[in-house]
């Protein structure tokens, strides 16, 4: 079930004229909505809608042993589940490549930016640190789950609080909080995916547009610089094209960052 050929041809033709079916500019996002605290059981959670695309993201914390190569740092685990509920295209069963990539690219976007101060998540060096679980679930896929997931992850991390921890019993007391947020930097990373369709570049593709994407480049911008990047699909880009993508990302990410920050305040 993919986009039909006549529709595909029309989309490409429109893009060459700088037009899209929903009248957006090539580098415009659909309307972004962020609803806070959608699950009381999570340490922080949000619902993000970009047009008809919807994800929910929740943060859970637990105390665990640190990794041997970072004994004084907390852990981060990001996973994404493309629920069969959210699209006729998603099936039950072990995670497919798309959802693994979705989780991993989101993970690196957060991790590499240095947005989380992992050293402050250490309880006892070499023994106990906080593990931060970021779990992403798709609720409705109408394209660009990638950017929705990243937005959701950042917003949910901003809202998360650290639960109480009883050092004697070694147990986390869920539902009771120290009133302490996660150790996060002031700036938020923002991820933007740029898609190549025919000879055009667009951001925030709808499902139909994403079907035609020949190449996706996801860039995370943090404090004005690129902190992570992933080029997907086996379509080669020229040097001029990749430079153009960097420019689009720089421009778009500024706009989107402002919009997100306003919404999660």
């Amino acid at each position: 079930m993919t986009t039909t050929e006549p529709t595909s041809e029309r989309i490409k033709k429109y893009l060459l004229e700088g037009k899209r079916f929903d009248k957006r500019g090539l580098f415009d996002f659909r309307e972004i909505k962020i609803e806070k605290n959608v699950s009381k059981k999570a340490e922080g959670s949000v619902r993000v809608k970009i047009g008809k695309t919807e994800v929910i993201v929740g943060i859970k914390l637990d105390v665990a042993a640190p990794y041997p190569d970072s004994p004084d740092k907390g852990n981060l685990m990001v996973s994404a589940d493309m629920l069969p509920l959210s699209s006729p295209r998603f099936e039950l069963g072990p995670p497919k490549f798309e959802s693994i990539e979705l989780g991993r690219v989101t993970d690196r976007g957060i991790r590499e930016s240095g947005f989380i101060d992992f050293e402050k998540l250490c309880i006892k060096k070499g023994e106990k640190v906080w593990t931060v679980f970021v779990d992403i679930y798709s609720i409705n896929d109408d394209g660009n789950l990638m950017d929705a997931a990243a937005m959701g992850a950042i917003a949910a991390l901003r809202l998360a609080r650290i639960p109480k921890y009883d050092e004697e019993t070694g147990k986390v007391i869920y539902g009771e909080y120290e009133n302490e947020s996660l150790p996060l930097k002031e700036d938020s990373p923002v991820s933007i995916s740029i898609h190549k369709i025919g000879n055009s570049f667009v951001v925030d593709p709808t499902r139909e547009e994403e079907d035609l994407s020949e190449c996706r480049v996801t860039l995370t911008t943090y404090e004005g610089a690129i902190s992570s990047m992933q080029k997907s699909e086996s379509e080669a880009l020229t040097i001029d094209e990749i430079k153009k993508i960097f420019d689009i990302s720089e421009e778009t990410s500024k706009k989107i960052l402002k919009e997100i920050e306003k919404k999660i305040k």
Partner: peptide, 11 residues
């Protein structure tokens, strides 16, 4: 979903 309860469920 993993964060529907206090102690995270493995997806």
């Amino acid at each position: 979903i993993s964060f529907s309860v206090s102690e995270r469920i493995r997806p």
